[in-house]
Write a protein that binds this DNA or RNA. Structure first.
Lengths: 140, 140
DNA sequence: GGCATTTATCATGTCTATATGATAAACTTT
DNA sequence: AAAGTTTATCATATAGACATGATAAATGCC
């Protein structure tokens, strides 16, 4: 039901990187900040880089940065490499369930599922950063 | 994110039993109707019986029935033995996250999570049965 | 009581998510 | 070019979800 621990770690890591405002952040620093296991986090970060969410650089002064501005990066993009959000699951698990061929739960459930999906597709990393810091902290 | 396959099978099974209107339904019949694997379904049904959602009877003329009227049985009660709905997960996985100590995502995420939880707590099996059958099919 | 039917329980197996540890490859600095 | 730092990748381990198969226990019918 709720987001997997992998997705939680991915969002936490991206938030941590976004907070650095363009400075590269090393995997070790992220692990320390978020409490995620280092090696597993490495895999998550690598997957995000492959998905085009992060850019990575090796060597000293290396680390991870956002590949696009925080106000254009949605939670859906961060979660997508780890969880198929698009393929919304029928509450009864029927593969043919849809608006045309609804299961018993479809009409009411699809509304809840849509609002969940909309949350991920409209919430940006920048928005979360703003919510976290005191009002007016952004340069607007 | 979405409900697990176990929860899907549980809800499907309970709907199937509710549709029998008090007649006991055998595990084999439910497996045939829902497509769930028989032995695994047995475990699910047994768990639902232990949780007080179903009553079971062995032997010929045995099977499973609802332990309470369909209009008093919520999806939350059906899902609860398999998934901790109550312990709403923080989007970032922070154990201390809450209204008093919110994470960056808390304010917006908690609204979505609440609507999801409300869906499970207010939707009854009777309601799903009504939605599935043509309008006016219930004896109201 | 004996038998067929059905749920209850146990033992086990598979698959995926999660996690760990070691090594390879790339980059920076010197 | 050599050394140090960091990400990339591989091999493996662990836990839990999902599933299978066999056996035990209870119930109704004859």
């Amino acid at each position: 039901m709720w987001p997997s621990s992998t997705v939680q770690q991915a969002i936490s890591a991206v938030l941590c990187i976004a907070a650095a405002r363009g400075e590269p952040v090393r995997a070790g620093a992220i692990a320390d900040a978020t409490g995620a296991p280092r090696n597993y986090l490495s895999k998550i970060l690598h997957a995000l880089a492959r998905a085009g969410v992060l850019s990575s650089e090796r060597g000293p002064r290396g680390g991870f940065r956002l590949a696009e501005p925080a106000n254009q990066l949605t939670l859906a993009a961060v979660a997508e490499p780890f969880e198929r959000l698009g393929q919304r699951r029928c509450l009864l698990g029927r593969p043919t369930c849809g608006d045309a061929n609804p299961c018993a739960a479809h009409r009411r459930w699809s509304k809840v599922a849509s609002s969940l999906e909309e949350y991920f597709q409209t919430t940006t990393i920048a928005r979360l950063l703003d919510d976290a810091s005191p009002a007016g902290a952004s340069r607007a």
